[in-house]
């Protein structure tokens, strides 16, 4: 089989250039979708019959929570590819994912606890979703801690990749155990996303936000990836050409 196209695709100068070209194609749609989704969600959508205007935080909370998991999956898949095929660019992708995912996780935690104030009367409730989200944050912190603790980039890449794969196997187990634990101690929570009949005026902005956040992630990932490639290839000669005006 001819693998030249594959190696060309994965070569740092090509990745650097390609990521730069692709970024606007994700960033602009993301900005439009998020602006539209926010307007639709915060202005156009009717207040919830139970939660009033308080529910509107869902337009930031749900997409953040969704992305926090999605980014972890992406990171683990990239890490596995890097481990199995020894692809350096895949490791760079995984390394770029972590801070973005951790930021989404923090956003989900903050909005979740803000939401908790009107719903439960406290900023923190040991709700299974929020608890799992908090543990996910620790998984991200562990991943980044391991990367920064290992000085050799190659070793940091491969060791953190093992951790990401181990983490992804554990995420469902952790979530299951936390849900199980919660069912022992508490009545089911008020906060739910899966109500059967969400009116379209509420649902459409939410979907726009979900898609917008996903595109935002891709745009951020591409930008971070360029930085990551530059750092890793700082000794290479192509960089001088790429950066010269």
């Amino acid at each position: 089989m001819n693998w030249t196209w594959f190696h060309r695709l994965a070569s740092p100068p090509h990745v650097y250039a390609l990521a730069g070209r692709l970024t606007p194609w994700f960033a602009w749609p993301a900005a439009l979708l998020i602006a539209g989704g926010l307007w639709g969600g915060l202005v156009l959508a009717p207040p919830d019959y139970q939660q009033g205007d308080g529910f509107r935080i869902i337009y930031v909370h749900a997409p953040s929570a969704w992305m926090s998991l999605m980014v972890y999956m992406t990171m683990a898949v990239a890490a596995a590819i890097g481990l199995i095929w020894r692809m350096k660019v895949a490791h760079a992708v995984a390394a770029s994912c972590a801070p973005i995912g951790a930021s989404f996780t923090v956003a989900a935690l903050v909005t979740g606890s803000l939401w908790g104030r009107p719903m439960w009367g406290t900023y923190w409730e040991w709700d299974p979703r929020l608890t799992s989200e908090l543990i996910l944050l620790f998984l991200y912190l562990g991943y980044m801690g391991l990367r920064s603790g290992l000085e050799d980039t190659q070793r940091a890449d491969r060791a953190s990749a093992v951790l990401a794969v181990v983490g992804v196997v554990n995420v469902p187990i952790i979530h299951y155990s936390v849900t199980w634990w919660n069912s022992l101690h508490q009545a089911p929570s008020v906060m739910r996303f899966d109500r059967p009949a969400m009116p379209a005026a509420m649902l459409v902005p939410l979907l726009m936000m979900l898609l917008g956040f996903t595109l935002l992630f891709v745009a951020l990932l591409l930008t971070r990836l360029r930085g990551e490639v530059l750092t890793r290839e700082r000794a290479a000669s192509w960089i001088r050409e790429a950066l010269s005006p």
């Binding site: 998984l139 181990v166 983490g167 952790i174 299951y176 155990s177 634990w181």
Partner: peptide, 17 residues
Amino acid sequence: ALLSLLTLPLSLPVLIF
């Protein structure tokens, strides 16, 4: 400290059960 940060989140299900 890093070892705890890596190991404890993965150990939570054991703690719970």
